[in-house]
């Protein structure tokens, strides 16, 4: 077990009952996708895993030990823009390597690889203010995968990419984590994306948040996405998940309306 969120209670000032005894486990090497309506608490879960937020009650364990302070064993691609505005794209991407005192030669080599992967080689020397929204997302993505953390936390990483690039990134992400054995916790709104990538999909909803259903797409680690897209089971899953998402959405809305009425 790499990440173990166990019986966690958490809330904000205006959303006091968000998590009431929530559980979430991610095995070593496992790819878990979180699917759920907007505002249900997905990013909150991820911030707990990153150690940016701390549970009121319950435990967040990482790699067998309770998490104290920030979790430096993860690469976190947040929903917001956290590029350093005063550093070039190249400098931003190699920042984690620099902080880890990786040699210059290796930094260059890794930069070269990931920057080509995310298709930003031409924008290497640009500042973030000169990038489009999608380019910023790609730079953030490159930064979170350039070092090899034990676990990737990805909050809607591909939302702003065009369809082609997204397909390329899907396949690349899968082969990278298959090679490195990294675990991934992946938030998305995109049903087909979750089926294509995940070993396990958690459909979340309600208030307090609960796992409405757990689904394991049966395609294995070495899947070829072009093939998966043609499987009969893929369409089945998609239909099923769409139905689930509708329920989750309705339940979350109803629960929020109920708490507002109180």
């Amino acid at each position: 077990m790499l990440l173990d969120i166990h019986d966690v209670h958490f809330g904000y000032q205006n959303e006091v009952e968000l998590l009431q005894g929530f559980d979430l486990q991610v095995e070593r090497g496992e790819f878990v996708a979180l699917l759920g309506p907007s505002g249900c608490g997905k990013s909150t879960l991820m911030n707990l895993a990153a150690g940016l937020l701390h549970p009121l009650r319950g435990d967040v364990d990482f790699d067998g030990a309770p998490l104290r302070g920030l979790n430096r064993e993860v690469g976190y691609m947040t929903q917001g823009d956290t590029l350093l505005p005063w550093a070039s794209v190249a400098k931003n991407i190699t920042l984690p390597l620099e902080l880890r005192k990786v040699s210059r030669a290796e930094r260059e080599e890794r930069l070269d690889r990931v920057i080509r992967l995310v298709n930003l080689a031409d924008a290497k020397e640009k500042f973030p203010s000169e990038l489009s929204g999608g380019m910023k997302r790609r730079a953030l993505l490159a930064r979170s995968i350039v070092y090899d953390p034990q676990m990737l936390l990805m909050d809607e990483p591909f939302g702003a990419l065009d369809a082609q690039l997204r397909e390329v990134m899907h396949q690349e992400l899968l082969s990278t984590v298959a090679r490195t054995g990294q675990s991934v916790l992946f938030i998305t709104h995109d049903i087909s994306e979750s089926i294509l990538l995940a070993d396990r999909i958690l459909v979340l909803g309600g208030l307090p948040l609960r796992v409405m259903e757990e689904i394991r797409p049966p395609y294995g680690k070495n899947r070829v996405l072009a093939q998966v897209r043609n499987e009969e089971s893929y369409f089945e899953l998609e239909r099923h998940l769409r139905e689930l998402m509708r329920e989750a959405d309705a339940e979350t809305k109803a629960a929020k309306a109920r708490t507002l009425a109180h």
Binding site: L52, L70, R72, G75, T78, G80, L84, P96, L99
Partner: peptide, 16 residues
């Protein structure tokens, strides 16, 4: 503070 957290998760110490 979001920027600071992001950089600390990447492994930066106080001085960095």
């Amino acid at each position: 503070s979001e920027l600071i957290s992001a950089v600390r998760i990447m492994g930066a110490n106080q001085l960095q």
